[in-house]
Structures are given as C-alpha cells and as structure tokens.
C-alpha cells in the first residue's frame, strides 16, 4: 500500500489510459461473492460486480436493502462498526481491500466519500478544504489546491470572498459541495457518495447532479440513491439491490428501458419501494 500514497494522480491516470486500450473498460472496484453482515445479520449477500473507471455507477434500491453497507465496505468505513464482518473479496485496482496488506488509512487517500448529510468541520471554509491535504503532508501550494478543489466542486464563485468564514454559515447545498471539495482536495481516484442529495432541496439537488456530471471526467463515482430519476439522469451504469442481493446491474439506459428482471421493472415503475 505504501506505493499508493506516493503514486500521484497523473500516474494512475496514465496507467488507466494505457489499460483502456483493451476492449472492456477498466475495472476500478470489483466485488467477488461479497457478503457483508453485522453480527449474525446478513446485510449484503453474495454480491459480484465490477465498477468501471471514470464512470458514474448508481446503486439503487429500497431503504434498508444494503446500499450503504456495500458502499461503506469500499473504503472500509464499516471498520468503525465492531460487529461488521466480511466474506468474499473486494478489490481496488487489484488490491484486496480487506487483506492485511491494505491499510485503510492509505486506501481512503484514493477512495473519498461524501455522506448523506453535509458534515463540514466547525472550521472555516478554507480550513475544511485544506484539512486532509495538511494532515497527509501535502507540500504544494495549499491556497492553489483549495481554490482548484472549490472550483471543481462548483463552489468557488460563491465563497471566494468569504473563505475564512465558518462553514456552518453556508446553506445545506453549499455545505454539501464544500464536502465534495474537501474530498477531492485529496485528489482521490474514486468518490463514493451516499445519497448526497437526500437532505437538500430540489435546486441544490440539481446543482449537485450537474456537478456529478462534471466530476465523472476526473473521478470514478459510485452514487447511492433512492431517487430513481436521479440515477437515470446522472449515471452510466445502475445496480439494483433488493433485500441485500444484487438483482441486476447494467447500463443505466438498459435498466430503465428494458430491464432483464421483473423485480427491477416493478421497482422502476414504482410498483413497490
């Protein structure tokens, strides 16, 4: 894992660019017969899927079907739950995420996360964005990194005159974009988003959706959402989960126009959920 910390973003870009010469798109995260549980309770059962590079992959399904559990396994955020357990394999660019060789702290340099509710630190806007690069020993121009991150999160124009004000003074939607800026300041490879718009109003939601469209060029995005329109609007691929199992995983267009399974069809047309 040590090489992950040193590997600059451009390295991984060129590597994936050369690999893309092969017919199939690159797989960034790959689950192989993955089963996740809390104690004896099984939350995700026997899931296998490949998440492709530089695409938006949506995970949809009714509440409690295991979307968050699956997503949080990808950057080992489940480690903080003492009863959480894992079977099967989960690979990040070939590295087994749950092997002893993988250090969760270093893994999270490459796999960032945005949460359901905006959770900025009670610090200034600037310090929020600079926080992670600083503790990870970033040696470049911090001011420039903060500006670039805020620009990529489509927040720069709104906050450039009040960088040193407390982040809590921002609106919910702005706070969520700040959290995205904070995550991309580490220049990650993958961004995991767990229902990033569920606490936001429709206008703020639309802005985040536009942002996700732009992020796709730079990052691999895995987006959990219970909002099917959102999945249809922003994602390239969609995985449908139901009661801990992966029912279907395909191109978003296929999933929403001619799904292969009856259950997917029922969910998408709103017959349950």
């Amino acid at each position: 894992m040590a090489e992950l910390r040193n590997m600059s973003v451009t390295d991984s870009r060129t590597r994936s660019a050369t690999r893309r010469v092969t017919a199939a798109p690159d797989t960034v995260i790959s689950a192989e017969n993955l089963t996740l549980g809390y104690g004896s309770f099984v939350a995700v059962r026997d899931v296998s899927l490949d998440i492709p590079d530089r695409k938006v992959t949506a995970i949809i399904g009714p509440s409690g079907c295991g979307k968050s559990t699956l997503l949080r396994a990808m950057n080992r955020m489940n480690d903080v739950v003492p009863s959480a357990n894992v079977q099967g394999r989960l690979l990040y660019r070939g590295l087994d995420i749950y092997s002893p060789r993988c250090d969760s702290v270093e893994l999270r340099l490459k796999i960032g996360m945005v949460f359901q509710r905006p959770n900025p630190f009670p610090k200034s806007i600037y310090k929020n964005v600079a926080w992670a690069p600083k503790i990870n020993g970033y040696r470049g121009d911090m001011g420039e990194l903060v500006e670039r991150s805020l620009q990529h999160a489509a927040l720069w124009d709104e906050v450039k005159d009040k960088l040193h004000q407390c982040a809590y003074a921002l609106s919910g939607g702005q706070q969520q974009r700040l959290c995205i800026a904070r995550a991309i300041a580490l220049q990650p490879d993958v961004l995991l988003m767990d229902e990033p718009c569920s606490a936001l109003d429709p206008i703020a939601t639309a802005r985040i959706e536009d942002l996700i469209d732009e992020l796709e060029n730079r990052y691999t995005v895995v987006l959990v959402t219970h909002n099917m329109q959102q999945a249809a609007r922003v994602s390239d691929l969609t995985a449908f989960m139901y009661m801990g199992e992966l029912v279907e995983f395909d191109a978003t267009e296929t999933m929403f126009t001619k799904p292969g399974r009856q259950r997917t069809q029922d969910y998408i047309t709103g017959r349950f959920g």
Binding site: G112, F115, N119, R182
Partner: peptide, 25 residues
C-alpha cells in the same frame, strides 16, 4: 459522530481524528 466519519473518510488516523477534530470541536 458524523464529524468523526468525515475525518476518517479523509484518510485520518484515530489519533488525527481525536486531536484535530474531536478536541478542537
């Protein structure tokens, strides 16, 4: 708890979460 999660997701160690997020907050 959400502040701790934010810090862990930003590649912080437990010590960094404690001293740079929890104590200041």
């Amino acid at each position: 708890r959400t502040l701790r999660e934010a810090a862990y997701a930003l590649s912080a160690t437990r010590l960094e979460v404690s001293t740079r997020v929890v104590v200041p907050a």
